[in-house]
């Protein structure tokens, strides 16, 4: 008897799973979006953007005040998770707008055909090099440059590195905190940065820097935490990081080192979901994010606004925008990332 119950349970498990999968296909007939005219809008954004503590709250509030459209801001995890979720819901669409897919993921996002091109009017105020997706499917709303930040109280002025190459100098032994590209987008940023600067020789740099690294953390949080804890005077982060310390801690102790060879860019895009039934509202929201909300996003997200008209807080003079900004074609990334990561792992685990 007991076995029967268990059997039933397992059977239910399987059939339910199948049903879930099945459900995806059944509805596919009535897919193309009849537009609904009401005052609602659903926005997916990454976790730290939403919630009471992120910039989302304020942006949404201002948007609702301005347009009268009711926004449901849903935290949908990080970039890959958001893509997965929209993909899962392809046939019974929930999201109208997805905010926060970075340029690294552009290929995935575009290939999925989940999104629709929208040439927002605000694009004219956004510098061309930031518009990473020329099809305007992913519209850039903020960006940052990866950079090595340093503790000016621990590192003498003459020791501040001025290039990636500098960091391989043995005098930095045990003084740099790096981040693993296999587990962190910031870490991945540096890997791509080295590709941009050194091309196929990028691994030589990594071999040189390997011994200087105090540790290679799993994510930005632990790296930066160790940095402010004083474990090492140099950490991989963003050029904007010092601005935070100026804004909220009144200290200019932590600074970003600007390298002449240029910095790798990370740009976050906002996109219109193809199956959306509130496209008019969605477009209004995208416009709003690319224009009115820019200053708020800069302050609370600690990123640069893409819109050149947006005013920057004073503290941002401690977050210098590098003169040279590098990026790799996202198609290139998609093609080679696996190999790069595997090679990187081999070199670094020796």
């Amino acid at each position: 008897m007991k076995k029967h119950i268990l059997f039933i349970v397992m059977l239910t498990a399987l059939t339910t799973t199948l049903l879930f999968a099945q459900g995806t296909k059944e509805e596919s007939s009535n897919l193309q979006s009849q537009q609904i005219e009401d005052n609602t809008l659903t926005v997916y954004a990454y976790d730290s953007f939403c919630g009471e503590w992120g910039p989302g709250q304020k942006v949404v509030e201002n948007f609702e005040k301005k347009t009268g459209i009711k926004v449901d801001l849903v935290s949908a995890g990080d970039g890959p998770q958001m893509l997965n979720k929209v993909e899962l819901e392809k046939d019974s669409p929930v999201a109208d707008v997805v905010l926060g897919i970075p340029n690294d993921l552009a290929a995935k996002a575009l290939n999925s055909s989940l999104f629709e091109s929208y040439s927002a009017p605000a694009l004219k105020d956004i510098p061309a090099h930031l518009i990473f997706d020329k099809t305007n499917t992913l519209n850039p709303f903020d960006y940052g440059d990866f950079a090595f930040c340093y503790d000016s109280e621990k590192l003498a002025k003459k020791d501040v590195p001025t290039s990636l190459e500098d960091l391989t100098d043995p005098k930095y032994k045990g003084k740099i905190i790096l981040i693993d590209p296999r587990t962190s987008t910031v870490g991945l940023g540096l890997l791509l940065w080295t590709r941009e600067v050194f091309g196929d020789d990028y691994l030589t740099w990594w071999e040189g820097v390997k011994d200087n690294a105090l540790t290679i953390t799993d994510g930005w949080s632990s790296a930066y935490g160790m940095f402010t804890e004083g474990e090492a005077p140099i950490v991989l982060s963003y050029t904007t990081s010092p601005a935070y310390h100026v804004m909220w801690e009144n200290t200019t102790r932590y600074r970003a080192a600007i390298f002449n060879e240029g910095h790798s860019l990370t740009i976050e895009g906002i996109s219109l979901v193809k199956s959306s039934r509130h496209k008019a509202n969605a477009k209004k929201f995208i416009d709003f994010v690319l224009d009115d909300a820019q200053a708020d996003i800069a302050v609370t997200n600690t990123m640069y606004p893409t819109n050149s008209k947006a005013p920057l807080p004073d503290a941002y003079k401690w977050a210098p925008i590098p003169e040279k900004q590098l990026s790799i074609d996202y198609k290139d990334i998609e093609k080679n990332l696996d190999t790069w990561l595997a090679d990187w792992t081999t070199v670094m685990s020796k």
Binding site: A213, T215, T217, D218, M348
Partner: peptide
């Protein structure tokens, strides 16, 4: 996961 990478010193320990 985190403990191994961060405190272990990186990808040597995966």
């Amino acid at each position: 996961f985190s403990i191994i990478l961060v405190l272990g010193g990186g990808p040597k320990y995966t």
